[in-house]
Amino acid sequence: MTDSLLAKSIDKILEKTEKETLVNLENSFSDAKQTLDNSIPKLEQEFDKIISDGKKEADKIEKQIIGSSDLEVRNKQLLTLEIAIDKVFTKALEQIANTTRSADYSNLMKTLLDESTKILSTTKVIVSTNSKDKDLVQSLLSKYPGAELSSETINCLGGVVVKSKDGAMKFDNTLDARIQRLKPLIRKEIATKFGVGN
């Protein structure tokens, strides 16, 4: 009798414990499921953030690489172009320096003298030129009353430097100075011939 009662009690306790355990297990399972379900969107958000941050970083690096290599190439191109322009310039200057002093050249010198005296508003000037053009300028100066040729020659491709007699005003009308003033436009012309800046 006592044994059967004991067995019954044990069974009851076991049954109750089993039920409780099952309920707990079910609860735990649903809690775990809930936690998992909740974490999925968070994980997805985190995943999206990592991907978008990574994409941003990749874009940034891509921009950096492309930007700097584009610039590097462009700068090399600019330097090469400049070397070519310089070569053309040197060649052109050599040609100008070796020009034969023809009638056209004489007319050019007269124009330069006219222009200079007009700008200085006086013909009472001292004119300097290079050794090649000394005689030519001397012959032209007779048309400018008060004008004198400087005893000292200057180093230039051609043209004249005209100074007022009191030394207050000077006008550089040498070919070198004129080329220098027009250099930016000439550079552009040369670059255009190379197919740049069209």
């Binding site: 222009e115 700008i119 200085l120 030394g167 207050a168 005003m169 000077k170 006008f171 550089d172 100075a177 004129r178 003033r181 027009l182 930016p184 436009l185």
Partner: peptide, 12 residues
């Protein structure tokens, strides 16, 4: 831009 430059003055 023209080939003509300007006059240089030395009376400062």
């Amino acid at each position: 831009m023209t080939a003509k430059g300007g006059v240089q003055y030395s009376k400062i």
